[in-house]
Design a protein around this nucleic acid. Structure first.
Length: 265
DNA sequence: ATGGTTGACTCTCAA
């Protein structure tokens, strides 16, 4: 069967109802992974997702900040959450789809403004979580599992993942310590970058454009902060990938756009 | 070098 999975940093699930309807209508994913839901579980707008046909859900949220959720038209099994770095943030949810496909939905800390872990605890937290994830997935290398890892990793690893490699080398999200760290995490398990398997690394590809811009489309100062990785066992199933760039121009948008993959499983 | 905008929520923080 064809499996369509969309990941989106929604930046508040409660004010994005109309756009979620539009995504359900235009993309029609089987599984929707959200980040930055910004709401505790008791206030999550579950009725909307039921109306849209997502009758299975694992929500892992907190008040005002962070929060991840997996909405699905297929049954979900073995839901679990991970805490990292002894912080209580809701940043990592895992579920299993029929056929034993693990879905890992991640929201890595943005990291603040100053790219120095000595003076910026948010940047230190970002690097620490990257290292923790590298240990976690590295310990599983070679386990042969079918796995999809998605989310807002808040790092643009390639030169073509940012509007200006040179100008962003000292900007949090594209500093060498972050891009090296992300590549180490990817290599620790042998994840395949599904987006770059479809769009060659020579081509520019963005998923985020700052709100702090008069005209996001004209200036096009984007970054690829959102990612879809596949385990070696699942990589051969990849059939397609789409970045819904136009969603950045919809009314009351998130600053991130949805990324969708299609698999033959 | 700075400021620009958005969202949740409190009189500000995080992104």
């Amino acid at each position: 069967m064809r499996l369509k999975l969309t990941t989106w940093n929604v930046n508040s699930v409660r004010i994005r109802g109309q756009l979620l309807r539009r995504i359900a209508a235009e993309i029609n994913p089987d599984v929707l992974c959200l980040q930055e839901t910004k709401v505790e579980d008791g206030l999550f707008p579950m009725a909307l997702f039921h109306e849209l046909g997502f009758n299975h859900a694992y929500i892992h949220g907190q008040r005002a900040y962070h929060g991840v959720a997996v909405l699905s038209k297929l049954p979900l099994e073995a839901p679990r959450a991970h805490k990292w770095c002894n912080v209580d943030d809701c940043r990592h949810a895992v579920v299993e789809l029929p056929g034993g496909i693990e879905v890992h939905n991640l929201y890595v800390p943005a990291g603040g403004d100053v790219p120095d872990p000595e003076v910026n605890r948010k940047f230190k937290h970002k690097l620490d979580m990257l290292e923790a994830l590298t240990g976690f997935y590295g310990a599983r290398e070679g386990d042969g599992k079918k796995m999809i890892l998605v989310g807002d990793l808040n790092i643009a690893p390639l030169e073509t993942d940012v509007w200006s490699h040179k100008q962003l080398l000292d900007v949090v999200s594209h500093t060498p310590v972050e891009t090296d760290g992300l590549k180490r995490l990817q290599a620790a398990y042998g994840f395949v970058d599904a987006m770059r398997a479809i769009v060659p690394p020579e081509e520019r590809l963005y998923t985020w454009w700052s709100y702090r811009n008069r005209d996001w489309a004209a200036s096009n100062r984007g970054r690829r902060l959102d990612h879809v990785w596949l385990s070696p066992a699942l990589a051969p199933a990849l059939r397609g990938m789409e970045v819904k760039r136009e969603a950045r121009g919809w009314e009351q948008p998130s600053d991130h756009v949805p990324v969708t993959i299609e698999l033959e499983v």
